[in-house]
Design a protein around this nucleic acid. Structure first.
Length: 330
DNA sequence: CATTCGTGAAGACGAAT
DNA sequence: ATTCGATTTCACGAATG
């Protein structure tokens, strides 16, 4: 167990550590915020955007899955340590019972006084308690959705950090746990450059509608001050190319060509204000025109969920820019 | 015939007031 | 909370090969 954990860790380091940045505490690679270690969780997270920069040292135990809510509660490894939870629970109930027994129904004025104090105490424990339950359910949902969509562990952890922060900042009252959990997961995907549309969560979320998730996402990114970069169209290329129905003769070439088109587009500021999906789709179609792949706008559109009209508009611009630059090179 | 192109109306979204 | 501007989409007809 610890061996695989270590292996994965070193792998992460190799692939993600950029040369020169070998210190653990520094600034976030995504937003430049301060990194803060959480010993209790064994994570190092960014204060500003919640990105999990590194996860290490703590063996989190087996990755199991919960199949119903009862099991989820019983098995959940998230939230405060069980001992703390039990301690609070036990304490609060003990005080409760004692006072009720001691005073009974008589001495109403005194009793009321007591009850007031009791209530404040009880409320404190109860809110802690309900927060814990809330957190468990939310993280269970994040795990469930992540499994369904095949989202990697690092992104999951980032999502859970984000959700914890929402909870800490009292952002939840009035919102459904589901929508906030889904939004956290989406935000985490954005931060780790995981190319997923917000709509792709709808089949697996239990939130009432996509609109709720979108609202929750806006709310989260605003309140938490997340600095999330716009989606890089290049990140979508692989996805769309593999979603093409038609077999392409040279996928490598097509991808390279699309990439250069996107490079040129960015140079010329053709990307600002435009939807990244449209840019990626347009680049693919444009590239296919250049190298004679023979893809139709409809085919590219279906693979990328964009309309043929939009593909037209984008690829024409890009081919224009491409022609200009190749001309200039000669 | 399939594909591509251009159009105007309508919806969605972000920014600003 | 509403308004505004830009982008995207839809539906359509026309042109191209």
């Amino acid at each position: 167990m610890s061996e695989t954990q270590r292996e994965r860790q070193t792998e992460d380091e190799q692939t993600q550590e950029k040369p020169g940045s070998k210190t653990e505490s520094g600034s976030c690679t995504e937003c430049g915020g301060t990194l803060r270690p959480h010993e209790s969780r064994g994570e190092i997270t960014c204060e500003d955007c919640g990105l999990v920069a590194k996860q290490d040292t703590i063996d989190r135990g087996p990755e199991w899955r919960a199949f119903d809510s009862k099991e989820k509660n019983a098995k959940s490894r998230v939230g405060s340590p069980t001992t703390k939870l039990m301690h609070d629970k036990g304490l609060s109930t003990e005080i409760d019972w004692k006072d009720k027994d001691a005073y009974g129904n008589t001495l109403s004025s005194r009793q009321r006084k007591k009850m007031q104090r009791l209530r404040t105490w009880n409320e404190r424990f109860q809110t802690e308690d309900s927060q814990d339950r809330n957190l468990r359910q939310a993280l269970g949902e994040i795990d469930r959705m992540s499994s369904a969509l095949g989202i990697d562990t690092k992104t999951r952890e980032t999502a859970s950090v984000l959700y914890r922060r929402c909870l800490e900042e009292d952002m939840l009252p009035g919102r459904s746990i589901e929508s906030m959990a889904t939004a956290s997961l989406y935000a985490a995907c954005r931060q780790t450059a995981n190319p997923r549309s917000i709509d792709s969560f709808f089949p697996v979320t239990r939130a009432r509608s996509n609109m709720h998730v979108k609202r929750a996402y806006k709310y989260i990114s605003k309140e938490l001050g997340l600095k999330i970069k716009p989606i890089d169209p290049k990140d979508l290329l692989n996805k769309y190319l593999s979603q093409l129905d038609k077999e392409v003769s040279d996928r490598q070439l097509l991808q390279r060509m699309s990439n250069t088109l996107l490079d040129i587009a960015q140079e010329r500021n053709l990307h600002s204000g435009r939807s990244p999906t449209a840019l990626a789709a347009g680049a693919i179609y444009g590239a296919s025109q250049i190298i004679d792949e023979g893809l139709t706008q409809k085919e590219v559109g279906e693979a990328s969920n964009t309309s043929t009209v939009t593909i037209r508009n984008r690829y024409q611009e890009m081919l224009q820019a491409y022609g200009d630059t190749t001309e200039a090179q000669q």
